[in-house]
Nucleic acid binder design. Structure first.
Lengths: 321, 321
DNA sequence: ACAATCGCGGTCATCTTCTGACCGGAATTG
DNA sequence: CAATTCCGGTCAGAAGATGACCGCGATTGT
């Protein structure tokens, strides 16, 4: 009965992967009769995993939150994200769950295929960003929106646009995109009957997921590309600042060890010094990290970075008095 | 055949939970005959999950890393750790996996039981420290050691003790404990024939997991309590630095909006000012983040924080020139 | 070298259950 | 009202699961 068990797992995987499925869709996907699907759903329920079902023309099955956590079926990318997340949680950036994180991490790493392990190592070598000076986003909101995108359900929320005008929006979400600096929602605004992008940090009020909507495909097919075009077109510079450059009075090799390669490049500048450049736009947190190295340093450019440094000196200077 | 499928999942769960199991143990646990266990193992293998087996008197089954990631069976605490880890990963502290983290988070939160969701919310609102400047631990090392503790395998490593004396250690690990500031390994040193605690950041050289050792129980039964006693006895102060307090000359409400609640608390200090306290130990990054607010500020305490401020002024002061 | 332990896999008889096909019923949408 | 969808009953045949028994080979420790 390998077939049956495997099918149950596959069914669970499908239900975790996407919105709602009709019995027929599941039956086609799993290559069994619809009756068997009904029976399998019954089995999942008897195992404690609540599969919700809705009859009617827009009905379907969907996996809900129950008393027991079902086995998580992750694809490669998600497994990497989980591993990286656990690593940062373990190394002490969150209070109270370090030991549990380590336990979960040990469990995951034991079964993590080698090809994924390499990528986890690569990514987690680059932890604790300079970045993230951007607006803080509530992860719960983020997850809700991402879920709505996956499920193709409508979203209702209040939005404050660039010009501070508030409005109520009803959209059919398509994708959540991270620009490297900010989070955006790409969605079809049903009231305006056109595509729009929303900065998620400007979404406010109560966020409600609505009824099942149409699944939309963004013009061009690639939400990230679409967002990029939109940002460029609207003139909203998303990361216009030039890289920051700071000269450190320590040898390049020594600096390289202390600076995550992912965020900045280190070039030697003579024997005893080096120049560190951010890979992307400079941010004040870059300054922070450089200052925290506690080595003699000098801002090469841009002027705004030097200005920020002076401002910080002023503030810190007062603080001691 | 709910039984069979459920048993397969339970088997997977057991194999993810612990070291090696003999067929008999598994049979007892799952209340079936040993022959059925063998058949179930066969089934798992045919599903692509590599169950390694060792014959002989010290043999047993263990789940290895295969080409495919098996379904993760997490207990409550682990599920929370994963959710919290994903949330921090999603909100931008790690570059390059934000979107995947959000996807995985949406998947997990959809099925997360309500009782766990509450705890996730509570915890992710309570991150500690501004990047906890404590010694950086390689999460890979941490996971390896935690795995050895769980599996009861021997560990071999080089260790540098407090007095800078290096030594080679062969131990039977018992538990990994986080003091809230540092990571420790509680283990039985087979060469010295006694219990020892090791600071994990002092473990160096190549860390090797050895053969199957005895499963040890620390005197008293509670590794955390044991560690605490040891630390107290040896006079090694582990207690992290006290919270940092900085007075800002802006109203509390305004400060609250700009300071993530999870990192620090804001109390009003008159109408026009407030005092910001770190939730955990102060660190230099707290200082810098406050400076980045670019508002008049004053270090209330502790004195070391004020000292750090003066030092930083020196560094930054050079930087502008 | 020997014995004990443990995983491996074959066979067999019995029993359970799975599957697909058919049916009518109930809920929901439009 | 019609269409769609989930629900669950029944039936017969097929398929698989289980436990009991067996000998084999590998590993460990004496």
């Amino acid at each position: 009965m390998v077939q049956t068990s495997a099918r149950l797992l596959a069914l669970l995987s499908l239900l975790q992967m996407r919105r709602e499925w009709t019995g027929q869709e599941l039956a086609d996907r799993l290559e069994v009769g619809p009756r068997t699907i009904r029976r399998d759903v019954e089995k999942l329920r008897s195992l404690g995993y609540p599969v919700e079902a809705a009859p009617g023309v827009a009905g379907g099955y969907r996996l809900g939150a129950g008393g027991e956590l079902p086995p998580l079926l992750l694809d490669d990318a998600e497994a990497i994200a989980v591993a990286v997340g656990l690593r940062t949680a373990a190394t002490g950036s969150i209070a109270g769950i370090e030991e549990t994180s380590v336990r979960a991490l040990a469990k995951l790493e034991q079964v993590l295929p080698a090809r994924l392990r390499r990528r986890v190592n690569a990514l987690s070598g680059a932890t604790s960003a300079f970045g993230s000076e951007g607006p803080r986003i509530d992860a719960d909101v983020l997850a809700t929106i991402a879920g709505a995108c996956r499920d193709g359900t409508e979203l209702h929320f209040a939005y404050v646009a660039k010009d501070d005008k508030a409005s109520k929006r009803n959209v059919e979400p398509c994708a959540v995109v991270y620009s490297g600096y900010r989070w955006y929602l790409v969605a079809f605004d049903t009231d305006r009957d056109d595509w729009r992008t929303f900065r998620i940090d400007r979404i406010g009020g109560r966020l409600r997921v609505g009824a099942r909507g149409r699944r939309r495909t963004v013009p061009g097919g690639d939400p990230a590309a679409y967002l990029k075009r939109q940002l460029r077109a609207s003139g909203a510079e998303d990361s216009p600042a030039p890289p920051g450059r700071i000269r450190l009075h320590i040898p390049a090799a020594q600096a390289g060890r202390r600076i995550p390669e992912r965020y900045a490049t280190v070039e030697p500048d003579g024997e005893e010094a080096c120049v560190v450049s951010t890979r992307g736009a400079w941010s004040r947190s870059f300054l922070v990290w450089m200052a925290l190295l506690d080595e003699p340093m000098h801002v090469v450019g841009p002027p705004e970075l030097a200005e920020a440094a002076r401002a910080m000196v002023t503030r810190l200077g007062e603080s001691g008095g």
